[in-house]
């Protein structure tokens, strides 16, 4: 029996490869200097969904992302790797959301998608490392959650069996469907793009993207509906404005500081034999080592 799976994915700045121009002089983040990527653990989540699709005939994988218009890249990337379709939730009303307001918006979109058996998300996103959105979405939807998942063992007869990675061990748990699960980076990496799917979905666009294309762009989405990426604004989803964006975010950023190290007086050495020899002798003499 096939499953209907929703994968939550986020487009994030690549904070792992921060160059020297990543910070502006005033100490704020220069987002333009950072590449926007598919959040790594969301790819682990997508892979688990694609494996279930292979295992259980008739399974569909739907991506859901919230972000600015360019986050449609995340949907395309997912389609290239084997997802069936995707939704982009995009509106200024969502700007400034903390994890709770994000979870609320996502849960409203999921309620609109309505028909699903399983929600899979990455454990956490590299720009915040909070690991909060998965559990908060689960709570908003009143569904059970299983976090830190490393492997989906099976999903049969309305139940899912999962392997979790804990600090010092592993746990096998069984949860009912539907449930929300979050996947760790210790789970298998996502498969690469498939050439065939890349050809098929290369021209997949949201409505706003289609409207801003160059004149020679030929819109084929009427004949090929799979080329249409669903884009939802706040008006397409049933929400209560008081829980959205900045207003709906209980946490506020009070201050942001650039990192300034208190410079210690340090001894600078070269790696010459003589200097290393002297360093070792000094450390032994003051009983730091030995």
């Amino acid at each position: 029996m096939g499953l209907k799976i929703i994968v939550l994915a986020k487009q994030v700045p690549d904070t792992r490869n921060v160059g020297k121009d990543a910070m502006k002089a005033d100490g704020t983040v220069n987002r333009a200097a950072l590449a926007a990527i598919f959040n790594p653990e969301d790819l682990n989540a997508l892979e688990q969904a694609l494996r279930l699709k292979e295992k259980y005939k008739g399974t569909t994988v739907t991506l859901l992302t919230m972000g600015p218009g360019r986050a449609a890249d995340i949907i395309r990337e997912g389609l290239f790797r084997g997802a069936d379709d995707g939704y982009l939730l995009s509106d200024r009303a969502f700007a400034g959301s903390d994890t709770l307001a994000t979870s609320y918006a996502l849960s409203c979109a999921i309620k609109k998608i309505k028909d699903f058996d399983l929600i899979i998300a990455g454990r956490q996103a590299i720009d915040g490392d909070t690991a909060q959105v998965g559990p908060q979405v689960a709570e908003k939807l009143n569904l059970p959650q299983v976090t830190y998942v490393e492997d989906v063992i099976k999903a049969e007869k309305g139940k899912i069996t999962l392997k979790r990675r804990l600090e010092r061990g592993v746990e096998t748990v069984e949860a009912p469907l539907p449930s929300v699960i979050t996947v760790n980076s210790s789970a298998p990496s996502c498969r690469p793009r498939a050439a065939k799917l890349l050809m098929k979905f290369k021209h997949a666009r949201t409505m706003s993207e289609r409207q801003s294309q160059a004149e020679d762009y030929i819109d084929m989405s009427a004949d090929r509906p799979y080329l249409n990426i669903q884009e939802w604004s706040v008006n397409d989803v049933e929400t209560d404005a008081q829980w959205l964006g900045l207003t709906g975010s209980p946490t506020k950023v009070k201050t942001i500081e650039n990192v300034v190290f208190q410079a210690k007086e340090s001894k600078v050495l070269t790696a010459s034999d003589k200097e290393i020899d002297e360093l070792i002798k000094e450390l032994m003499l003051n009983h730091t080592i030995g």
Binding site: D98, T99, L100, A131, Q132, V133, E139, P250
Partner: peptide, 21 residues
């Protein structure tokens, strides 16, 4: 793994802000 599983669930239910790590 427990605190990061439980914290967000509770903060969502009580609508309170949670800061991780």
């Amino acid at each position: 793994t427990m605190g990061r599983d439980l914290g967000p669930r509770v903060s969502s239910a009580l609508y309170s802000g949670l800061t991780a790590d």
